[in-house]
Amino acid sequence: MTPELAAIVGSFPDAELDSSGLDPLVRVPRDSYRALVAALAGAGCRLSDVTAVDHMASIEVVVQLLASASEQFSVHCMVHEDDPRIDTLVPVFPSAEYAEREVFDLFGVDFLGHPDPSRVLLPDHFLGHPLRKEFGLEVAPW
């Protein structure tokens, strides 16, 4: 991660930069999530992907960002299973729209302020969010 981007992360007191993994990783609480990503976007970062990982009690929203064509890092934000809401990134990165719809569809995370908060891969009448760990393969909720 470039010093410039590390300084942006450092300007958010609740964001934590972890360089122990294969790629740099920034953990940020929900309150500063969009402000941090917007600041990184302002410094020229490009969006590669928005996805999520279910950790049973909480869901981790993962944003893959590109500092340059070859340099990548990610921003992680935990949301609690009982209150799975997070700000949308669409105003910052318009290309996040469908990826966030997919995270809503498969994980049940609500993106606040999303222009089209609807399912994208599964039909509208589908019950449940299949990439949640409690959604087993044997369960057909209809």
Partner: peptide, 9 residues
């Protein structure tokens, strides 16, 4: 979604 096979799951 017409070809969604749930490969990630």
């Amino acid at each position: 979604g017409y070809l969604h096979r749930g490969i990630e799951k």
